[in-house]
Design a protein around this nucleic acid. Structure first.
Lengths: 208, 208
DNA sequence: GTCTATAGGTGGATAGAC
DNA sequence: GTCTATCCACCTATAGAC
């Protein structure tokens, strides 16, 4: 049977898929950054885990700043995709928020912190190129949340006193903070309890 | 005129007050930890700022872990004192919460993050002796907040659907998270806006 | 693309003079 | 209490062989 293209053919005979080395590096760097922070891991940590030398890491990511930037870019893309997937399912505002919270919960259940929440703490020490990506990530989260909240207001499935944009900002900070503290306590249920209250605040009736 | 004691006499002729070296070290270490994190500063940073050598720092704090622990202990004591001072003034629950928020705002206006919120991000990399102090700090904050919230509930100056203890946990995480994000944006007013909403949620009437 | 080898710097920490 | 001098581990990064 003839392969449909040379690209497919090459793939079939390659033991390592294209970019897999870079992907493996990013995977391990992401895990380390989410648990120990950007200043809390080194090329040596990644190299040891992957069974390669530090020098080979520099072939894929010339500097640690480059690696850090790639980390944020990929994380951002994954998050965007996850939000798009939530939007695709035709859920109401409350269920979309629940799905959003479950993204955090998944991260936390792997003993990790949100990558960008983690890096926000280290902001002052980060290479400048990494900083822009951070606030862009938070801005994107706020925009998505504001859209969902505005939708919930229109549909009367959510209720809150201020604007959707303001409430989105409150929600984002609260979830990141709750996540951070839950991780320090090593107790993911602590996050879930707070998140449930935050969502409850948006849907509970104003009058008895 | 005869000094009342040799202790007083010595003090009068001493150019440096007792423990002032240790205090200066703690002051600078605290500033660095609040802006750059525990893993983001070194003995060299402190020594350079104070115009002494690294070796002399080790005389006062044998290891960086010792310094880190002293940092948390002092921060905790200062916070306890601030909360006691708030309680001493006979304010109602809402004003006590406003004063509590203003403690955060003061820290933030110096371009700093709450020391313990900062260290919470680095939790996995911290020397074990430092970890206990962290959660103890958060526990104390939650207890104080829960007390104020319960008081507000009794006085009917505050209103919220769940228990004071649960709401205290929501509030603490939300304030720490808002602080972290505001600092990344370099915008203290961002924190204030969120804090105002969080407090507003607790006092706004449930019915129109 | 991965290796060996190494450069050049900084980390926390200690010994011993003053 | 502070200094000089030093240790050794670790850091990011590069050169050049394979």
């Amino acid at each position: 049977m003839k392969p449909r293209s040379t690209i497919d053919e090459r793939s079939a005979y390659r033991t390592t898929i294209p970019g897999s080395a870079a992907t493996a590096i990013l995977d391990e760097a992401e895990r380390l950054a989410q648990t120990r922070g950007y200043n809390g891991f080194s090329y040596a940590d990644i190299a040891a885990r992957l069974g390669v030398t530090k020098a080979s890491l520099h072939y894929h990511f010339r500097s640690k700043a480059d690696l850090g930037r790639a980390l944020i870019d990929r994380y951002r893309a994954g998050f965007d995709a996850a939000l798009t997937e939530i939007d695709r399912q035709g859920l109401d505002a409350r269920d979309r928020l629940r799905r959003y919270v479950s993204l955090y919960q998944t991260v936390l259940s792997n003993d990790r912190m949100c990558l960008c929440g983690m890096l926000a703490a280290e902001y002052a020490t980060l290479p400048v190129p990494m900083r822009k990506g951070l606030t862009a990530f938070f801005d994107a989260n706020e925009r998505w949340l504001a859209g969902v909240l505005a939708d919930g207001l229109r549909q009367r499935t959510l209720r809150f006193p201020d604007s959707a944009a303001r409430r989105a900002r409150v929600l984002l900070g609260s979830l990141e903070g709750a996540m951070m503290l839950a991780r320090a306590y090593g107790d993911a249920s602590r996050f879930q309890a707070v998140a449930d209250r935050l969502l409850g605040d948006l849907s509970s009736p104003k009058s008895a």
